[in-house]
Design a protein around this nucleic acid. Sequence first.
DNA 1: TCTGGGGTCCTAGGACCC
DNA 2: TCTGGGGTCCTAGGACCC
Length: 440
Amino acid sequence: MYGLVDCNNFYVSCERVFNPSLRNKPVVVLSNNDGCIIARSNEAKTLGIPMGAPLHLYKTLIKQNKILVYSSNYTLYGDMSSRVMNSLNYFVPDMEIYSIDEAFLSLKKFNNKTLLDEMFTIRQSIYQWTGIPVSIGVGPTKTLAKLANKMAKKHSSNGIYILTISNQLTNILNDLQLEDIWGISKGWANRLKSIGINNPLQLQQSDPCKVRKLISVVGERIVYELRGNSCLALEEVVNKKSITVSRSFGKMINDKYNLKEALANHVARAAEKLRHQDSLCGEICVFINTNRFRKKDLQYNNSATLTFSDLTDNTTVMIQQAFKLLEGLYRPNYNYKKIGVILLDLKQREKDFINKHYIIQGNLFTYNKNEKINANQSDIDIKILDSINAKMGKMSIFYGSQGITKQRRREKVEEDKWRMRSGYKSPLYTTNWNDILKVS
DNA sequence: TCTGGGGTCCTAGGACCC
DNA sequence: TCTGGGGTCCTAGGACCC
């Protein structure tokens, strides 16, 4: 069984920990620049404030109902999140932190008979230790645990809901909307409806291959997950694969000087994040946007990407390159609302040495990303290369991130082979049947 | 007047390789 | 091992999540 622990109205709950007078009152927390409402207490939800609502559209409602409004404090929320996760980890070491306020638990080692009591203990303890109320959903797959969590929030008095494959599940699926299922949003729901799948129960009972044709293998996995066949494993916490820092401007900005100032700040922050996870980056992307909500204004959205000749975590280098990219992007005749930077092609520092160097006949050379090394080149010491390749999981030295792709593909093919042997009709990961046949 | 920020995965199709 | 059709790499774009 899997568990999903979700902090209730997380940002609001964090504010309440340090300001108990906010309890039982309608409270909302705002995004950067105080533009949107991104967290609501139950009381605020009852008053009809939707998620992501623009603040200026709800000023009257807020005033009338004396809703308390707070700017966001991400440092506080990050810290509270760590406390919650650490507390959870005390009870369940085998867990996946899914977002700032959610974690999946592996409950394999728990006794099903005492599960409810155990979950109750966890919930109580977290509240006692951190002041944050949580809901816990339990189910045979991650998707069903997600669903159970939704039920816990809606229909459970103690904040816990355990879902098993039963008539109860059938009834629940029949009563819900497709969009209530984790992984299905409006676009896919509409496509599913177009072939006569109108609710989660029909989805659960539909032909997985048909669903796959319509909304890709992701949809097919959902079908199996709804049936209680687990396709999504607990994922170990790994470093980010890309790092973005971007902000909207309070006022629109036209001049390059201000854009550069903002960009430099964003890049510096991104570089900090990069070093914090002990990575180096190979690519940098800068993007700028005009205000998409001002339909009358001329719109301009663009981005530019640059590959570093060497992997780097150097702030100065990154800012220099980001400025170069901005020079190419900037058009003087627009008003800009947002600028941001994305660091891509991230690599672990430990592997950096191997990624940046190669050996020819005992001599060490620096590997240049733009220069492709051919393994057949007679002057490369194949034996040494082989040993490095083996250490890296093959190929990474030549193809950077593609090496990881290859590795992953191999893993997926293995899983699919197992799947086909076990009598499933279609593979879950591989697009190409030849992959399966070939390795089989 | 005023509309967030940060992620991941999957697929199709073209270029290129041998 | 293999010489023409199949495999691999790469990118853009589109979904989804919180």
